[in-house]
Protein backbone atom coordinates (compact mmCIF):
# COMPACT_ATOMS: atom_id res chain seq x y z
CA UNK A 1 0.00 0.00 0.00
CA UNK A 2 2.62 2.51 1.10
CA UNK A 3 5.03 1.30 -1.54
CA UNK A 4 2.38 1.79 -4.19
CA UNK A 5 1.75 5.28 -2.89
CA UNK A 6 5.45 6.04 -2.96
CA UNK A 7 5.66 4.75 -6.53
CA UNK A 8 2.74 6.95 -7.49
CA UNK A 9 4.39 9.89 -5.84
CA UNK A 10 7.68 9.31 -7.61
CA UNK A 11 5.85 8.99 -10.92
CA UNK A 12 4.12 12.28 -10.18
CA UNK A 13 7.44 13.89 -9.34
CA UNK A 14 8.97 12.47 -12.51
CA UNK A 15 6.13 13.95 -14.52
CA UNK A 16 6.51 17.30 -12.87
CA UNK A 17 10.20 17.63 -13.59
CA UNK A 18 10.02 15.77 -16.90
CA UNK A 19 8.82 17.32 -20.12
CA UNK A 20 7.60 20.87 -19.69
CA UNK A 21 4.23 20.13 -21.23
CA UNK A 22 3.41 17.41 -18.70
CA UNK A 23 0.49 18.37 -16.49
CA UNK A 24 0.98 17.04 -12.97
CA UNK A 25 -2.47 16.19 -11.74
CA UNK A 26 -3.18 17.10 -8.13
CA UNK A 27 -6.15 14.75 -7.73
CA UNK A 28 -4.10 12.38 -5.56
CA UNK A 29 -2.51 15.12 -3.47
CA UNK A 30 -3.35 15.76 0.16
CA UNK A 31 -3.14 19.22 1.70
CA UNK A 32 -3.26 19.97 5.43
CA UNK A 33 -3.96 23.23 7.25
CA UNK A 34 -1.90 23.81 10.38
CA UNK A 35 -3.56 26.53 12.42
CA UNK A 36 -2.37 27.79 15.79
CA UNK A 37 -5.45 29.49 17.21
CA UNK A 38 -9.22 29.47 16.78
CA UNK A 39 -10.33 31.74 19.61
CA UNK A 40 -11.71 34.83 17.85
CA UNK A 41 -14.25 35.70 15.15
CA UNK A 42 -11.58 36.28 12.54
CA UNK A 43 -10.04 32.82 12.99
CA UNK A 44 -13.46 31.18 13.08
CA UNK A 45 -14.33 32.84 9.78
CA UNK A 46 -10.98 31.72 8.41
CA UNK A 47 -11.69 28.08 9.29
CA UNK A 48 -15.24 28.24 7.91
CA UNK A 49 -13.94 29.65 4.62
CA UNK A 50 -11.34 26.89 4.44
CA UNK A 51 -13.99 24.23 5.00
CA UNK A 52 -16.33 25.66 2.40
CA UNK A 53 -13.80 26.05 -0.40
CA UNK A 54 -11.76 22.91 0.21
CA UNK A 55 -14.80 20.62 0.56
CA UNK A 56 -15.87 21.78 -2.86
CA UNK A 57 -12.39 21.19 -4.23
CA UNK A 58 -12.28 17.70 -2.74
CA UNK A 59 -15.69 16.69 -4.15
CA UNK A 60 -14.66 18.03 -7.56
CA UNK A 61 -11.52 15.91 -7.33
CA UNK A 62 -9.06 18.79 -7.51
CA UNK A 63 -7.24 17.39 -4.46
CA UNK A 64 -7.68 14.17 -2.48
CA UNK A 65 -7.94 15.78 0.94
CA UNK A 66 -7.66 19.14 2.67
CA UNK A 67 -7.80 18.61 6.41
CA UNK A 68 -7.66 21.46 8.93
CA UNK A 69 -5.80 21.01 12.23
CA UNK A 70 -5.78 23.53 15.05
CA UNK A 71 -3.48 23.33 18.06
CA UNK A 72 -5.17 23.52 21.40
CA UNK A 73 -2.86 25.95 23.17
CA UNK A 74 -1.52 28.49 20.64
CA UNK A 75 2.06 27.48 21.40
CA UNK A 76 4.87 27.25 18.88
CA UNK A 77 6.30 24.00 20.26
CA UNK A 78 2.88 22.37 20.00
CA UNK A 79 2.45 23.54 16.42
CA UNK A 80 5.95 22.28 15.55
CA UNK A 81 4.90 18.83 16.82
CA UNK A 82 1.69 19.12 14.81
CA UNK A 83 3.62 19.85 11.61
CA UNK A 84 5.96 16.91 12.26
CA UNK A 85 2.89 14.69 12.68
CA UNK A 86 1.60 15.94 9.33
CA UNK A 87 4.88 14.86 7.73
CA UNK A 88 4.27 11.37 9.12
CA UNK A 89 0.68 11.40 7.90
CA UNK A 90 1.99 11.81 4.36
CA UNK A 91 0.54 15.13 3.30
CA UNK A 92 1.92 16.58 0.06
CA UNK A 93 1.47 20.19 1.12
CA UNK A 94 1.05 21.96 4.43
CA UNK A 95 -0.63 25.35 4.67
CA UNK A 96 0.43 27.14 7.88
CA UNK A 97 -0.86 30.04 9.90
CA UNK A 98 2.08 30.12 12.30
CA UNK A 99 2.18 30.86 16.01
CA UNK A 100 5.66 32.32 15.58
CA UNK A 101 7.51 33.54 12.48
CA UNK A 102 10.68 31.74 13.54
CA UNK A 103 10.05 29.03 16.12
CA UNK A 104 8.54 26.62 13.59
CA UNK A 105 11.46 26.84 11.18
CA UNK A 106 12.98 23.55 12.36
CA UNK A 107 9.77 21.60 11.77
CA UNK A 108 9.18 23.36 8.45
CA UNK A 109 12.69 22.50 7.31
CA UNK A 110 11.95 18.85 8.15
CA UNK A 111 8.81 19.08 6.01
CA UNK A 112 10.67 20.63 3.07
CA UNK A 113 13.37 17.97 3.35
CA UNK A 114 10.63 15.35 3.15
CA UNK A 115 9.54 16.90 -0.14
CA UNK A 116 6.49 18.66 1.24
CA UNK A 117 5.34 22.03 -0.05
CA UNK A 118 4.84 24.49 2.79
CA UNK A 119 2.78 27.65 2.28
CA UNK A 120 2.46 30.11 5.15
CA UNK A 121 -0.06 32.92 5.31
CA UNK A 122 -1.19 35.62 7.76
CA UNK A 123 1.20 34.37 10.47
CA UNK A 124 4.08 33.75 8.07
CA UNK A 125 7.36 31.91 8.69
CA UNK A 126 10.89 32.99 7.82
CA UNK A 127 12.26 29.58 6.75
CA UNK A 128 13.46 30.19 3.16
CA UNK A 129 12.11 26.89 1.80
CA UNK A 130 8.51 27.89 2.58
CA UNK A 131 6.22 30.13 0.57
CA UNK A 132 4.83 33.27 2.21
CA UNK A 133 1.50 34.96 1.54
CA UNK A 134 1.80 38.23 3.43
CA UNK A 135 -0.42 41.21 3.79
CA UNK A 136 1.04 44.56 2.87
CA UNK A 137 -0.06 46.23 6.10
CA UNK A 138 2.00 49.30 5.29
CA UNK A 139 0.05 49.85 2.10
CA UNK A 140 -3.12 49.32 4.10
CA UNK A 141 -2.21 52.24 6.37
CA UNK A 142 -1.13 54.39 3.46
CA UNK A 143 -4.35 53.74 1.56
CA UNK A 144 -6.34 55.26 4.42
CA UNK A 145 -4.55 58.61 4.15
CA UNK A 146 -4.74 58.49 0.35
CA UNK A 147 -8.49 58.02 0.57
CA UNK A 148 -8.79 60.91 3.03
CA UNK A 149 -6.68 63.14 0.77
CA UNK A 150 -9.21 62.60 -2.00
CA UNK A 151 -12.23 63.09 0.24
CA UNK A 152 -10.88 66.04 2.24
CA UNK A 153 -8.59 67.92 -0.15
CA UNK A 154 -8.22 70.73 2.37
CA UNK A 155 -6.77 68.33 4.91
CA UNK A 156 -7.01 68.77 8.64
CA UNK A 157 -6.21 67.15 11.94
CA UNK A 158 -6.02 63.37 12.26
CA UNK A 159 -6.49 61.16 15.28
CA UNK A 160 -4.66 57.85 14.99
CA UNK A 161 -5.90 54.76 16.78
CA UNK A 162 -3.18 52.14 16.95
CA UNK A 163 -3.37 48.45 17.73
CA UNK A 164 -1.66 46.32 20.33
CA UNK A 165 1.73 47.80 21.25
CA UNK A 166 4.71 45.62 20.41
CA UNK A 167 3.01 43.59 17.67
CA UNK A 168 4.59 43.89 14.25
CA UNK A 169 1.25 44.45 12.49
CA UNK A 170 0.73 47.60 14.57
CA UNK A 171 4.16 48.94 13.60
CA UNK A 172 3.58 48.26 9.92
CA UNK A 173 0.17 49.93 9.70
CA UNK A 174 1.52 52.87 11.68
CA UNK A 175 4.48 53.18 9.31
CA UNK A 176 2.03 53.24 6.39
CA UNK A 177 0.00 56.01 7.98
CA UNK A 178 3.16 57.98 8.68
CA UNK A 179 4.23 57.61 5.07
CA UNK A 180 0.78 58.71 3.92
CA UNK A 181 0.87 61.81 6.09
CA UNK A 182 4.33 62.69 4.79
CA UNK A 183 3.02 62.45 1.24
CA UNK A 184 -0.16 64.43 1.97
CA UNK A 185 1.17 67.34 4.00
CA UNK A 186 -2.25 68.92 4.48
CA UNK A 187 -2.86 66.31 7.19
CA UNK A 188 -1.42 66.41 10.67
CA UNK A 189 -1.64 63.66 13.31
CA UNK A 190 -2.57 65.55 16.48
CA UNK A 191 -3.20 62.59 18.74
CA UNK A 192 -2.49 58.88 18.96
CA UNK A 193 -3.95 56.23 21.27
CA UNK A 194 -3.76 52.44 21.54
CA UNK A 195 -7.12 50.80 20.86
CA UNK A 196 -5.83 47.20 20.96
CA UNK A 197 -8.11 46.33 18.00
CA UNK A 198 -11.06 46.18 20.40
CA UNK A 199 -14.10 48.49 20.40
CA UNK A 200 -14.29 48.96 24.19
CA UNK A 201 -10.59 49.75 24.58
CA UNK A 202 -10.71 52.15 21.65
CA UNK A 203 -13.77 53.93 23.05
CA UNK A 204 -12.13 54.41 26.44
CA UNK A 205 -8.85 55.59 24.93
CA UNK A 206 -10.50 58.06 22.53
CA UNK A 207 -12.81 59.41 25.25
CA UNK A 208 -9.72 60.02 27.37
CA UNK A 209 -7.80 62.00 24.79
CA UNK A 210 -10.69 63.89 23.11
CA UNK A 211 -10.96 66.86 25.54
CA UNK A 212 -7.34 67.80 24.83
CA UNK A 213 -7.72 67.74 21.04
CA UNK A 214 -8.62 70.48 18.54
CA UNK A 215 -11.20 69.79 15.88
CA UNK A 216 -10.63 66.39 14.28
CA UNK A 217 -11.21 65.98 10.55
CA UNK A 218 -10.70 62.26 10.37
CA UNK A 219 -9.72 59.18 12.41
CA UNK A 220 -7.30 56.63 10.97
CA UNK A 221 -7.63 53.17 12.49
CA UNK A 222 -6.34 49.60 12.33
CA UNK A 223 -9.60 47.62 12.39
CA UNK A 224 -11.84 46.61 15.25
CA UNK A 225 -11.70 50.11 16.73
CA UNK A 226 -13.87 52.35 14.49
CA UNK A 227 -17.17 51.75 16.24
CA UNK A 228 -15.68 52.51 19.65
CA UNK A 229 -14.19 55.75 18.32
CA UNK A 230 -17.58 56.80 16.90
CA UNK A 231 -19.23 56.15 20.25
CA UNK A 232 -16.61 58.25 22.05
CA UNK A 233 -17.18 61.19 19.69
CA UNK A 234 -20.94 60.91 20.15
CA UNK A 235 -20.61 60.77 23.95
CA UNK A 236 -18.43 63.89 23.95
CA UNK A 237 -21.07 65.63 21.76
CA UNK A 238 -18.49 66.44 19.14
CA UNK A 239 -19.14 66.37 15.38
CA UNK A 240 -18.42 62.93 13.94
CA UNK A 241 -15.28 63.03 11.80
CA UNK A 242 -14.58 60.67 8.92
CA UNK A 243 -13.70 57.45 10.72
CA UNK A 244 -11.98 54.77 8.66
CA UNK A 245 -13.54 51.41 9.52
CA UNK A 246 -12.04 47.92 9.75
CA UNK A 247 -14.63 45.59 8.20
CA UNK A 248 -16.11 44.40 11.53
CA UNK A 249 -19.84 43.84 11.46
CA UNK A 250 -20.66 46.40 14.19
CA UNK A 251 -18.63 49.03 12.34
CA UNK A 252 -20.40 48.37 9.06
CA UNK A 253 -23.82 48.48 10.72
CA UNK A 254 -23.01 51.85 12.31
CA UNK A 255 -21.70 53.17 8.99
CA UNK A 256 -24.90 52.03 7.24
CA UNK A 257 -27.05 53.81 9.84
CA UNK A 258 -25.11 57.06 9.42
CA UNK A 259 -25.15 56.74 5.67
CA UNK A 260 -28.95 56.37 5.67
CA UNK A 261 -29.32 59.24 8.12
CA UNK A 262 -27.12 61.97 6.63
CA UNK A 263 -25.11 60.49 3.74
CA UNK A 264 -22.05 59.88 5.96
CA UNK A 265 -19.10 58.83 3.84
CA UNK A 266 -16.04 56.77 4.70
CA UNK A 267 -14.22 53.58 3.71
CA UNK A 268 -13.33 50.36 5.44
CA UNK A 269 -10.25 48.20 5.05
CA UNK A 270 -8.89 45.03 6.62
CA UNK A 271 -7.51 41.62 5.73
CA UNK A 272 -10.13 39.02 4.79
CA UNK A 273 -10.13 35.78 6.80
CA UNK A 274 -10.71 33.96 3.51
CA UNK A 275 -6.98 34.40 2.83
CA UNK A 276 -6.72 30.78 4.03
CA UNK A 277 -8.44 29.73 0.81
CA UNK A 278 -5.97 31.76 -1.24
CA UNK A 279 -3.18 29.85 0.51
CA UNK A 280 -4.96 26.61 -0.35
CA UNK A 281 -5.07 27.42 -4.06
CA UNK A 282 -1.48 28.61 -4.07
CA UNK A 283 -0.45 25.29 -2.51
CA UNK A 284 -2.50 23.46 -5.13
CA UNK A 285 -0.82 25.45 -7.91
CA UNK A 286 2.63 24.64 -6.55
CA UNK A 287 1.74 20.95 -6.38
CA UNK A 288 0.52 21.29 -9.94
CA UNK A 289 4.06 22.15 -10.92
CA UNK A 290 3.54 25.87 -11.45
CA UNK A 291 6.40 28.28 -10.91
CA UNK A 292 5.45 30.39 -7.91
CA UNK A 293 7.52 33.13 -6.30
CA UNK A 294 8.32 32.50 -2.64
CA UNK A 295 6.86 35.82 -1.52
CA UNK A 296 3.32 36.71 -2.51
CA UNK A 297 1.26 39.67 -1.41
CA UNK A 298 -2.40 39.25 -0.62
CA UNK A 299 -4.71 42.13 -1.51
CA UNK A 300 -6.58 43.54 1.47
CA UNK A 301 -10.34 43.74 1.47
CA UNK A 302 -11.62 47.29 0.99
CA UNK A 303 -15.24 48.35 1.33
CA UNK A 304 -16.43 51.65 -0.15
CA UNK A 305 -19.57 53.71 -0.05
CA UNK A 306 -21.23 51.93 -2.99
CA UNK A 307 -20.49 48.31 -2.06
CA UNK A 308 -21.23 48.70 1.65
CA UNK A 309 -24.68 47.10 1.49
CA UNK A 310 -23.48 44.09 -0.47
CA UNK A 311 -20.63 43.45 1.96
CA UNK A 312 -22.81 44.00 4.99
CA UNK A 313 -25.29 41.42 3.71
CA UNK A 314 -22.48 38.86 3.44
CA UNK A 315 -21.14 39.52 6.92
CA UNK A 316 -22.26 37.38 9.83
CA UNK A 317 -23.51 39.04 12.99
CA UNK A 318 -20.51 39.76 15.20
CA UNK A 319 -18.21 38.66 12.38
CA UNK A 320 -15.82 40.18 9.86
CA UNK A 321 -16.44 40.98 6.20
CA UNK A 322 -14.97 38.17 4.19
CA UNK A 323 -14.12 37.04 0.69
CA UNK A 324 -13.24 33.55 -0.39
CA UNK A 325 -10.69 33.22 -3.12
CA UNK A 326 -11.00 31.11 -6.23
CA UNK A 327 -8.36 29.35 -8.29
CA UNK A 328 -8.43 32.27 -10.74
CA UNK A 329 -7.78 34.78 -7.94
CA UNK A 330 -4.79 32.71 -6.84
CA UNK A 331 -3.46 32.57 -10.38
CA UNK A 332 -3.80 36.33 -10.62
CA UNK A 333 -1.87 36.83 -7.37
CA UNK A 334 0.83 34.43 -8.56
CA UNK A 335 1.08 36.15 -11.94
CA UNK A 336 1.29 39.62 -10.42
CA UNK A 337 4.25 38.57 -8.25
CA UNK A 338 6.41 37.74 -11.26
Amino acid sequence: MTIRKMLLASVAVACAIGPATAFADTATKKIALSNNYAGNSWRQAMLTSWDKITKEAVTKGVVAAADPFTTAENQATEQAAQIQNMILQGYDAIVVNAASPTALNGAIKEACDAGITVVSFDGIVTEPCAWRIAVDFKAMGESQVDYLAKKLPKGGNLLEIRGLAGVSVDDQIHAGIEAGVKKNTQFKVVGSVNGDWAQDVAQRAVAGILPSLPEIAAVVTQGGDGYGAAQAFAAAKRPTPTIVMGNREDELVWWKQQKDKDKYETMSVSIAPGVSTLAFWVAQQILDGKEVKKDLVVPFLRIDQDNLEANLANTQKGGVANVEYSLEDAQKVIASAK
Binding site: Q75, A76, T77, T102, N105, A107
Partner: peptide, 16 residues
Protein backbone atom coordinates in the same frame (compact mmCIF):
# COMPACT_ATOMS: atom_id res chain seq x y z
CA UNK B 1 14.89 23.39 21.93
CA UNK B 2 16.65 26.06 19.89
CA UNK B 3 18.61 23.33 18.12
CA UNK B 4 15.30 21.92 16.92
CA UNK B 5 13.44 25.12 16.10
CA UNK B 6 16.49 26.99 14.67
CA UNK B 7 15.39 30.21 16.36
CA UNK B 8 13.60 31.38 19.45
CA UNK B 9 10.87 33.60 20.75
CA UNK B 10 10.15 34.79 24.25
CA UNK B 11 7.10 32.54 24.68
CA UNK B 12 8.53 29.46 23.05
CA UNK B 13 8.40 27.06 26.01
CA UNK B 14 5.60 28.31 28.25
CA UNK B 15 3.93 24.89 28.12
CA UNK B 16 6.96 23.29 29.75
Amino acid sequence: LVGLTTSADANIALRY
